[in-house]
Amino acid sequence: MAGKSNKTLPPQVLTANQLFDGDVVYWREDGTWAQDLPDAFIFEAGAGIEAALVRAEADVEASKILDPYMFAVSIDEGIIHPSSVRETIRAKGPTVRLDLGKQAA
């Protein structure tokens, strides 16, 4: 299904951790990395994923980021909601320290 759209696939977001401090980052439409989930590009129906992963891999090789991967989200009134608790926590910070991580900013 390379490059083809697949209607049954949920929307997805590409994420990684920044090399410098391990901070969570998200792929933007222009191929740069955003700190915050609302700025992430949403891959609909699988389209464009392979090309983005290739470019992300180049950023791994350029020692900017680590471990890029896709995760599923749902969109509700324009707001991106990760489908797993894990990605929700990555997007915000520890649920037991609301003064730390992205949620604190």
Partner: peptide
């Protein structure tokens, strides 16, 4: 080897 791991939000 130097005790440094990568976690969810940071090292």
């Amino acid at each position: 080897m130097n005790g440094l791991y990568l976690q969810l939000h940071a090292y």
